[in-house]
Design a protein around this nucleic acid. Sequence first.
DNA 1: ATGGTGGATGGTCCA
Length: 256
Amino acid sequence: MIVATWNVNSINARQEHAVDWLKSAAPDVVCLQEIKTVDEKFPHDIFRQLGYETVSFGQKTYNGVAILSKLPMSEVRRGFEADVADHPRRFISANIGGIEIINTYVPNGQMVGSEKYEYKLRWLADFKKHLEDTRSSANKILWCGDFNIAPEDLDVYDAAAYGQQIMCSPAERNALTEIRAWGLDDAFRITNKEGGHYSWWDYRMGAFRRNHGFRIDHIWVSSALSGNCQKAWIDKAPRKLEKPSDHAPVLTELSL
DNA sequence: ATGGTGGATGGTCCA
């Protein structure tokens, strides 16, 4: 079973790329972030025609997440905090084939020390509490999405310049470390030890052409699943197209 | 030079 995560930066702008990529990569489960549209306007029918069930938790203009799955989905959960009508839509989870799939769009944080940065850290603490209060790391759990954090210096093209900046700062990395300690591991790092692999490149300054990237999109698995991770990889092909998302899909193959 | 690119939107905000 192949599970993928992809920040599409608007499903409306990226629908054609998404359809073409699903046909070629043929993942079984795809977690999307930044769909930037409401559930009524999400192209459910387009993906159903490709053999996927779809669930979404979207909002106008910003954020929004969705899961596409060739296998049936159950126990769909939208949001993990007390329901607030206008709360940013960054979380959707479902049980797929006995695996608890959790798809999140972690806040960007904008700049270290800003209000948005404090919100990012709060959000990560709240997410950890969600795991502690409602889940068991003894179960098969797969957490994926745009984490907006590069876990280590080797996940950044220029750690000397960016090691203390947003997506890399110690407090953010510590927040991730605490979630890891609850019982999750980076699927990509199970089979890839070297640096230089990135999932996001800024649209500006020719960052992709110069491979000025960050590995901020992730698939993390509980120990009950980590042994099933055959491989994990980043598919840069969609990032090379005209009008791409600024993120590339990340995938893992699980033997089940 | 305080820039640069892209999406949603219809002013800017967000990334």
